[in-house]
Nucleic acid binder design. Structure first.
Lengths: 357, 357
DNA sequence: GAAACGAAATGAGACGTCTCATTTCGTTTC
DNA sequence: GAAACGAAATGAGACGTCTCATTTCGTTTC
């Protein structure tokens, strides 16, 4: 059994209260007593029992983060940022994985609550929703900051990228390269951020005076097979293959690339491509893939800041924070070739690709 | 404040002891009392305070895992396996990141210890070592299972891949394709597993009757710049470029590929390549990269099994377990072209590459 | 040197839970 | 119906820490 303060007190020849005062840094301790206690700590290799302390102080100095799938590289990057901010402020961060299941997510939150964490960072799972009452009760009296994906029906603090604007930037880039037939493939549209990104697509087209074609909106999934099916369907549209494809997240984007490669199409030869998120080892992909990059570290970092503000009694009553961070576009080979459409000769548009060089 | 058992007792009209008996599942409770308590739990939305329970029972049902860098995809996969095994047995898993620093690793372990986790999975940080006494004291009275990287000076339970055998398999594969001048690039050789993989290299060459050339052993690093320097140096050897390169881990392997691409060399055109570990989105790399794949999920899963065996009073005294799991080789385009060496004509070997159609 | 004062030290009590010895209760047996 | 018995319920005490009211101590002041 690890040593306790009582044993320290005995060894140092002072009372247990004095030991506690030394450890918690009270000033009303004489140098002589402090030295004796510190010596005892050294001798017994004492480490405070944080569990007992938490029980008494009702503080755990611990935050929790629940992510949908820790094996998707996007999330560990956010965790890194969150952990950094937490540590700087003297908090621990417990990482849990909901495996993209709302049920499991509820379990994880209940667990963190039972562990008496002081607040939670939540990247909501996709899939089936809990009833609103259920999810409200899960987080009642517990500060929660949502990251990346925002629950439609919950009014909470949140940190994410300016999804609409970021998508618009990506699409504008493609339009700037001369594309007019730009398909978009999304993740599940039950996710709020996916909806926003789709909105950004519409917005960009509108600004560019290009009509939105329903046959170019491929509303998608995170599943490889499903994405493959969607791509196949999309390619079959009567007016032919689009010249460019934009994916609203890295998982779907990678799945789409795989599917298209599988049927013999490659970028940039057969289609121009850009995607949300950095595909891992992106600078190594041949060809390089144009990406809309989210500031993952900052997202985690900022989210902890917002959460701690909510936890702090002084500032807990502030208005809901909705942090929107800007994304960055990195243009690479998959999209940086200008694309020209010849003036219509007959009903079928004729496309040609001209390579600069 | 969340409701307590005392409040439950008041509402249900029974004593606090009975409430506790219901919650902890004792049998000596009448159905009538049990129903009343359960009803009270429902009404108050009671959740047990795990902190208070832990203080009393001296059990936390929590394990910790410390990884060097959660953003390296290899580690989250291990975490997934560990979390799975832990959950099945009713344990929670706290994930911490040592950021490859031994000092920070020590802090993380101290933290977990103060949190009174029941055991630790440790993937040791590289870099500067702590003194043996220090690291021994860190883990005294606390079950620890080391994963992947084994500390040379600590006798602990461990789970890792058969590093030597796995490397031998990779090298044999290259030899089987006709290569005789095979360079190996490693991570820091302070890591035990890197040493073992290098040993596998020597062993494979020995069995194949090929002499080991010091100029083909590029002892390396995880840092991109350092790896680039090492590759450059390696290429300058008097007897010319090796025909094949084997990397002993994914991080170094990816860095090496980048460096070589940067100087205009590509695989498989200019050199044959294989590496430990799956490079993320590997099936998407062009060309596909031959990999020695570690059973990451299983490693995490097995490690928790070993750890729990050590925690369980019944089996805590068993002999040290040294689990060695087999790796798998997946041959892809970067290495699956047979390579022929023409019989020596003069002192300088003439190489030629024949591509099977 | 007694009184006054502030600093230092003490020790009781509590955080929410579980355990276990003790008490209460209901049923069975003769 | 009293005695015996086992099941059910109770309540005191403890886990290790912190807090805070109280006490002790040492120094200063007149």
């Amino acid at each position: 059994m690890p040593p306790t303060q009582k044993e320290l007190a005995k060894l140092a020849g002072v009372s247990a209260g004095t030991v506690s005062n030394v450890i918690s840094g009270s000033t009303n301790v004489s140098d002589r007593s402090r030295q004796k206690v510190l010596e005892a700590i050294r001798v017994l290799n004492y480490q405070p029992n944080l569990i007992a302390r938490s029980l008494k102080t009702n503080r755990t100095n611990t935050l929790g983060i629940v992510v949908p799938d820790i094996t998707i590289p996007f999330f560990p990057k956010i965790i890194r940022g969150a952990e950094s901010a937490a540590r700087e402020r003297g908090y621990f961060l417990i990482v849990l994985d909901s495996e993209s299941s709302h049920t499991r997510e509820a379990d994880m939150i209940a667990l963190l609550r039972a562990q008496r964490v002081e607040g939670i960072l939540l990247i909501p799972a996709g899939g089936e929703r809990l009833s609103p009452e259920r999810s409200a009760s899960l987080t009642s009296n517990l500060p929660v900051v949502c990251l990346d994906r925002l629950p439609a029906d919950l009014d909470v603090d949140s940190v994410c990228v300016d999804d609409c604007g970021a998508a618009e930037m990506g699409i504008s880039h493609l339009m700037g390269m001369g594309h007019r037939e730009i398909a978009i493939i999304t993740g599940p549209l039950t996710l709020h951020n996916e909806q926003e990104r789709l909105r950004g697509y519409r917005q960009a087209l509108k600004k560019g005076g290009i009509p939105v074609q329903p046959s170019l909106i491929w509303s998608g999934s995170f599943e490889q097979d499903e994405v493959a099916r969607i791509c196949q369907n999309g390619l079959l549209r009567p007016s032919g293959r689009p010249s460019a494809l934009f994916a609203t997240n890295g998982v779907t984007g990678l799945a789409a690339l795989r599917s298209l490669y599988a049927v013999g199409l490659s970028t940039p030869r057969d289609f121009t491509f850009a995607t949300f998120d950095e595909l891992t080892a992106e600078d190594f992909f041949k060809p390089g893939i144009t990406s809309v990059i989210q500031p993952t570290f900052d997202m985690g970092y900022r989210a902890v800041e917002v959460l701690l503000k909510r936890i702090d009694k002084e500032t807990a009553d502030g208005p809901r924070e909705k942090v929107r961070l800007p994304a960055t576009l990195i243009a690479r080979e998959s999209s940086n070739t200008p694309f020209y459409v010849e003036p219509k000769k007959n009903s079928a548009a004729i496309r040609k690709t001209a390579r600069a060089k």
